[in-house]
Structures are given as structure tokens and as C-alpha cells.
Design a protein around this nucleic acid. Structure first.
Lengths: 192, 192
DNA sequence: CATGAATATGGCACCAAGTGCCATTTGTCA
DNA sequence: TGACAAATGGCACTTGGTGCCATATTCATG
């Protein structure tokens, strides 16, 4: 059991992220100041920066947790499964997040797409996924001087296909079927 | 002929980038201020921000020119060449930049790898390449509802393979053969 | 070559992100 | 309850980045 102090911290972090994202979506990223985020919660700017390194990070507060989850999912894939397929299946598990709340997901994707600072940050986060996942994947590959590189290429490819599918889906406001689109993107990469 | 005004502008932009990168490599990105970059050239901070939107951008001053070049190269590839191969060949043409000055190339890659803000920016720039190149590539593909997505996936995959090869090469200080490594990375993506 | 219109620059004031420092508050545990 | 650890808030400060306007430089035209 986590104790009061820890619970309060987690809750504040969560609230800061929620309020921040809401304001960014409603009024834009640049025009929302840290003070604007902090005020409704009665916290101080100084405290904000103890929870998040940058203003951008509030948008990606959930990434760390998700990273661990992805790593676990990939680890749990059947040992005999081909590497690319294992990564694809792992990423597919992310789709439930988009299914849960289409509207907010699309709004968030638009926000990160249209705010240069957030575009950079999201790529930064994706790079972390690439590193973590390829570190797991490498153990599935036959030993060779270039298996590290091979793992990185496999993961990066799957991730690129995934994000392009999701972005395309968000651009036309979720009109198409996301699962289908992601599946197609994975297939396109497989059949270069 | 460009006229004195235009020449001065281009030269100043080039000098700002050169001085900036030199200082970043020598003393680190965060610890170098814009004033530090501007002082040796007798320019003002205000002028700096008329040439570059952010401090990060000085590192990627050459990207715009390179983007045009890449687009032209891809356009010039033989019409019958398969799409993935056309993109790979296009990216291969970039390697001359690394060949020209190994030491500086490696230093630059290390700088961007180890500075979070620059990691984000470099991905942002890569995204621009992805957009431009896939816009060219799409005309080579058979018409279909998803050919835009297919073009994006092809380009993103080639680009991911390319950068991971280059990064791997830079990490062990250029010990291996870069052309060979990039070729292998392209092959890995092809044979997922 | 002169002169006036365009354009680039510099300086200044200003805002917001982010940090170091320290006093104060709040949770923890004996 | 009281002492210790940890979280917070306030404040001053640095730096990235922008708006504004006066000045300097280039360009085009007579």
C-alpha cells in the first residue's frame, strides 16, 4: 500500500497532466502558460517543474508507464514468433487506448501534429520506445555482428508504419477503421 | 547574380551556423548562449532570431537545401525502378557528406544524440524529409485508397534504416564501413 | 552621382520557461 | 507527541524568444 504522501504525489502529477492537456486543446499550447495550468490546482510553478522537466512533458505523462507495458508485452510474446510479427502484435495492443476515447485521441494527435515543440517531443519519446523495444528484441535474433542494428531496423520500421497509420486515421477524423489501417501499414512495410 | 545584400545574408547565416555548431561541440549545447554565438561575429541577439527560429535550428541550417536536393534526386531515378530501391538509392547519395569529413560528422551525430532538445529537432527535420519524399514517391505507385499511406511507410522505413545505420556507425567512432552498414540496414528492412 | 524607397540591423523593454536556494509545511514513524 | 525526511512555495535570476521603433545599409531610378 502506497501511503498518503505517495498517493498525493501521483494524484497531483495526474491532475497537472489532465488540466494541462485540456487547456492545450482548448486554447493552444503556446498561449497556455505554466501558471495557467497550476492555478486551478492551487499549486506553484516551482512545484510544477518538480513533476515535469518541460511544459511539453505534461502531454506525454503517460508514456513512461506505457513504455514498461510495451516492454512486458513484447517479452511475453511466444518465443517462436518471428521478430517483426512480435513487434507488430505488441504495438497492436496500444490500439485499445485509441478505441477508449476516439474524440480525445484525435484531438491529442492533432495537438501534437500542429505544435512544433510537441512534434519534436513526441519523436523524442518514440525514440525511447525504439531503444527499449529493440533491446528486448535483440535477444530473439541469431547472434551476429549486426544483430543490434537488425533489431533496431525491425522495431523502427514497425513503429514508423504504426504511427503513419494512426496519423492518417486522425487526419481524416477517424473516418476509417483504425485496426484495418494499421494492419495494412504493417503489411506495406513487410512487402517493400 | 544574387546582389550584395543577398550574399551578405547567406554568408551571415552560414557563419552563425558554423560558429554555433563549433561552440556546441566544444562546450555543450545548453551551456552555450545565443550571445556567445553572436558575439564573435559582432551581430546582435535580435538579428540571430531573424535567421533562426530557435537556438536548435543552427545545427540543422543545411537541411533545407538538402531537402530540395533529395527531392530532385528521387525524381531523377529511373521510372521503372521499384519504389523502395529508388528511395534507398536517393538516401545513399547523402553518404558523401559523411565521407567528406568523418570527424566532424561523428562529432555532430554525437552532439545531436546526447542533447535531448536536438534529438527532437532532428526527428522533426526527418519528418519533413518523410513528407517531401513520400509526396514524390506517391506518383510512382499504383492508384489505390491507401497509396499515400504506402508511400509514407516505404519512405519512413528506408529513412529509419538509414539513420540507425549512421547512428550505429557514429557510436563506434566510424570503425566500420559506413556504406556497407547502410546497405545491410536497407537489406534488413527489406527482409523483415 | 544623388536621393528616396526597401530592407536589414540594433537596442530596448518585455514575457515566459526553467533553476538554485532556503524557509516553511506536511507526512512518517518511533 | 516529537523528531526526522520529504514536499512545497516564494523569490531572485538566467536565458530563449518577440514586438516595436529608430537607425543604417543596399538598391533602383533620375
Amino acid at each position: 500500500m502506497p501511503g498518503l504522501r505517495e498517493r498525493k504525489k501521483q494524484e497531483l502529477r495526474h491532475e497537472l497532466s489532465r488540466v494541462g492537456i485540456d487547456q492545450f486543446i482548448a486554447r493552444g499550447f503556446a498561449t497556455t502558460t505554466v501558471d495557467d495550468i497550476v492555478a486551478p490546482l492551487g499549486a506553484s510553478k516551482r512545484t510544477f517543474f518538480r513533476y515535469f522537466e518541460t511544459k511539453e512533458d505534461v502531454v506525454f505523462a503517460w508514456y513512461d508507464e506505457l513504455t514498461r507495458e510495451l516492454v512486458d508485452t513484447l517479452r511475453a510474446r511466444p518465443k517462436h514468433e518471428p521478430p517483426y510479427e512480435a513487434v507488430c502484435a505488441t504495438l497492436m495492443s496500444l490500439l485499445r487506448l485509441y478505441d477508449a476515447d476516439h474524440t480525445r485521441a484525435i484531438a491529442l494527435l492533432r495537438l501534437t501534429r500542429e505544435t512544433p515543440a510537441l512534434v519534436g517531443k513526441s519523436f523524442e519519446k518514440r525514440a525511447i520506445w525504439e531503444r527499449e523495444l529493440s533491446a528486448v528484441l535483440v535477444s530473439r535474433l541469431a547472434k551476429s555482428a549486426t544483430r543490434q542494428l537488425r533489431a533496431e531496423v525491425i522495431v523502427a520500421t514497425a513503429l514508423a508504419a504504426f504511427t503513419h497509420a494512426v496519423d492518417g486515421w486522425a487526419v481524416d477524423e477517424g473516418a476509417t477503421d483504425l485496426h484495418l489501417l494499421v494492419g495494412k501499414a504493417f503489411a506495406f512495410a513487410k512487402a517493400l
